[in-house]
Design a protein around this nucleic acid. Sequence first.
DNA 1: TTGAAAGCGTTACCAG
DNA 2: CTGGTAACGCTTTCAA
Lengths: 339, 339
Amino acid sequence: MVTMADVARRANVSLSTVSYALNSTRPVAVDTRERVFSAMAELGYHRNAAARSLAARKSHVVALIFPAVEIGIGSTIGEFVASAAATARERGYHLVLWPLRADESADMVELARQGQADGVLLMEVTLEDARVAALRDAGIPVTLIGRTREPEGLSYVDIDFECTAAEAVAHLAGLGHEHIGFVNHSVRTQEAGYGPTVRMSADLATSAAAHGVRLVQTLCEETPVAGRAAVHDLLAADSELTAIITMNEMATFGVTAELAQLGRRIPEDVSVLAVVTSPGVVASTVPPLTVLLSPGAELGRLGTHCLIDQIEATVPVPRPVLVPCGLAAGGSTAPVRPH
Amino acid sequence: MVTMADVARRANVSLSTVSYALNSTRPVAVDTRERVFSAMAELGYHRNAAARSLAARKSHVVALIFPAVEIGIGSTIGEFVASAAATARERGYHLVLWPLRADESADMVELARQGQADGVLLMEVTLEDARVAALRDAGIPVTLIGRTREPEGLSYVDIDFECTAAEAVAHLAGLGHEHIGFVNHSVRTQEAGYGPTVRMSADLATSAAAHGVRLVQTLCEETPVAGRAAVHDLLAADSELTAIITMNEMATFGVTAELAQLGRRIPEDVSVLAVVTSPGVVASTVPPLTVLLSPGAELGRLGTHCLIDQIEATVPVPRPVLVPCGLAAGGSTAPVRPH
DNA sequence: TTGAAAGCGTTACCAG
DNA sequence: CTGGTAACGCTTTCAA
């Protein structure tokens, strides 16, 4: 193995000069620098990562706490991960995956204490997430994807549910709908304090009130069968329903199927709008669904930047970011039919 | 920071004994061992990862070359990644993501040479994949997810396309179908030498011949619109078609939609069988699709084991594994109608 | 602008 | 069964 000492010898400089040339952490004369670099090229030098980490007390690694179970079928998580990995790489970091459940926060802290990562990206954050305190107490830099109930002082990026809810209701209200149903995630996720479930419910209610439209909601398991049942729940709660908002990809399949079976055409009889969704569900119906797309890649990019900023900053400065879902117009929403 | 020296002092043993106790790399008296461990607990010791890697010349990290673009919408890749990360963890390794395109094999080798990872898991392998040679020449342990045209002597795990194709044809032939269509991935993937596209095409043809059924094939872009067109391509090629096999998730949406629009019911008029697919597409139709599920999690687990076996073996012993797709019966296939 | 040298916290060899 | 100690290859302080 070629070391810095070898390079130094070859370039007729000291070992430390090689290091400084490589890291630009101290000015080095141009010709010296050149000699160093050609020596490295000639020798085929590769800087040893472990030695660097040991000496610098820095791993140049960020960890992503990877959710054990995915809600839904979509590619959102994949997009998020790919974009986080790419962003980390751009900034000279590596992304490692720690597949830890929410109750394994001790393991998480242990790994960080071993210096396996300089900071942590926490996904699937719940409203009362015990992991956040565990990390904070351990002094480990962390950025949340999502946020707790009281996220003040924390670094996080999340979907702007308020804005997304407002857009969803505005879109439908603008088409004349005054009776809207909402198919949410499951009771389980609500009880777990899963942010999207809780926030979207509240924010849609607020927006609906502001537009003077009636909103009926139902929680729904993540299966098509449950989605079918949800349609009946909503119709029972409001027989004048003309539009349905869904935030549950598997259930959405059931919703559209059940509407078809009931002879209610989309969008002529009922408008359907899927929110916080991945691009894959768009194509699941004919016409394609109108959706508000989950900004997976954007969250991955922003979250990673936030975390690395925090790691590299001398003073930890949380910088929260909220990203709204973007509308992708399909053909599943239309003006309400006069009757 | 608490070091081994601190622990040694506290336990009244030498530093090396602490190391040996921790790694069980040399017998240690039971009581000594206990003293060491309680000292570690009392002091809150955490073994430093960088120092360990440096001294042992081993990172305990495996890298996953993460595909830049996903084909399809499914959760297969997510399942694969999650399962690979979990398996790595079970074996004392970490999984890092290297989001590198196929033409960035130089970067891949460079990272490995820096000691950032002990081995590499290569996804989306094509028939003539230049990265494989690059890694082999550099002496870097690698396991392919997929395989090249001539995979002899390489370590790989892949879908057993031959077996999967045989099962697909046997399933439909068993229902009496004698005119079957196949909607493959796009021309682009075929030209890139993407394994599934090329192998499934050949293996389905072989199986069809063996069963004496007529098979017509078409390559298809990964969009629902293209899937709709594919239906017409196939019908034009064989007007007596009674069954369609699809291996293209987005196209599958179009296929089912177009059949519905043509007034051809599934499965009464046409059977549809989606192969090498993720669970998400199952629910995309009513009745749910019959599918052959892509064994994403299984491949992640097996691939990671293969790689780590290879890393830890004194002699590199490739151990190829092929996994067939499992049938998940839905309601989209039925006996061919007598006419 | 450069050099010398002291760590960084382990692992693993050589002795006992 | 245990101890001493030389690497491991780099970063960074102190000195010139």
